[in-house]
Design a binder for these strands. Structure first.
Lengths: 192, 192
DNA sequence: GACCCGATCCTAGCACCGCTAGACAATCGA
DNA sequence: TCGATTGTCTAGCGGTGCTAGGATCGGGTC
């Protein structure tokens, strides 16, 4: 059975290579540049090999999104754990979120802008996505305020961050005042 | 000169037809379905005719966006003008904004998600875009709060609405609690 | 060691995309 | 009436995501 195991291992390794390469290419040149031909060339296999791992380009985007969700959750938790007051934690969370979006635009797009074939806010939502939302929830529950459902508050806060992230990156908002916008948002939304 | 005038008129008319058809097709079947071939077929001209009006598909998207911006500004002003307190105006504004996004998803995408080749937040930003932002600003200035720049406040409020609109439509938020989310947002962000 | 057979991979091609060159027809001014 | 200009179309380029079908390789069996 050792041969089969080796093959399985190699196959899994190649799958990771595909996802990593797609992500790298997307970060370098944008998702438009991630074509099945280019991707196949970079991993040094022919196009159809991609389709033996994923149903199509959409699923590859989805795989990058899941990888990104795990990283984002970790980044958010790391940023908030260093702070000692609820208010400071929320500020750190907001900055960490926007930083992640700015530093990993392609991953952020895969998560929240593109169609990766993933389901959100459902029971069958993949675990990494649920966990990323949980990372937000953990921090934001403390400042939701009395009588406000933490989930609802988290959704609103998250939507605001998402709006800032996407509008800034799309050139709809000038990046200069980002700090002021975060401060205003946290000041108003978070209950002390 | 009458002949030339007639031709100019017909040409302008055809341009309107292109934009209207693109918009209609996008609303019916999504922007992916708006291909130059299909668009040409619908207006009953050949493909190259499109390129005598617009540089390319991107400019067509931009034209739809500008048309949409004008409509959105009008819709926001209409909604807010019926209310008599600042707080009620802001609530009406938020609902009108999200309604517009929900009822005209393709136009909303052209405005804020897709690349229509337009510049935002600059001096050479097209007038309709500036005016749409102005419509938000007019209403939100009253609730920005002391010492807060109305423009900054408007950006943050707008980003929050944009986040809610896009995440909801992309399936990232369930549409059920939309009303509660708006109330929470207005309650916290708007200073009475 | 030779053979079979299944898994694996690639070549070639499909229909479609945005966009454009060049041929052709219609129309205008002289 | 004729030449020039304008307008439109046909045909085609290089690209896209995706797939059918043949070649090749390697493990398991005799």
């Amino acid at each position: 059975m050792s041969v089969q195991e080796r093959k399985q291992r190699e196959r899994a390794e190649r799958e990771r290579l595909i996802v990593a390469t797609a992500r790298e290419l997307a970060e370098q040149q944008g998702w438009d540049a991630v074509t099945t031909r280019r991707l196949a060339e970079r991993i040094e296999y022919s196009q159809p090999v991609l389709y033996s791992h994923f149903r199509g380009k959409r699923e590859i985007i989805g795989a990058v999104a899941l990888e990104g969700a795990t990283e984002m959750a970790a980044a958010l938790r790391a940023a908030t754990s260093a702070e000692h007051t609820p208010r400071a934690r929320v500020t750190a969370l907001a900055h960490a979120y926007l930083d992640f979006a700015e530093r990993n635009p392609a991953v952020y797009d895969a998560l929240f802008q593109l169609d990766g074939g993933l389901t959100y806010a459902q029971e069958d939502t993949p675990e990494p996505l649920k966990d990323a939302f949980a990372a937000l929830l953990e921090c934001l529950t403390d400042v939701a305020g009395d009588g406000i459902h933490p989930g609802l508050f988290t959704e609103v806060f998250w939507a605001s961050l998402h709006g800032l992230a996407t509008l800034t990156r799309a050139g709809r908002l000038l990046p200069g005042d980002a700090g002021q916008r975060v401060r205003l948002l946290v000041d108003r939304l978070a209950v002390a």
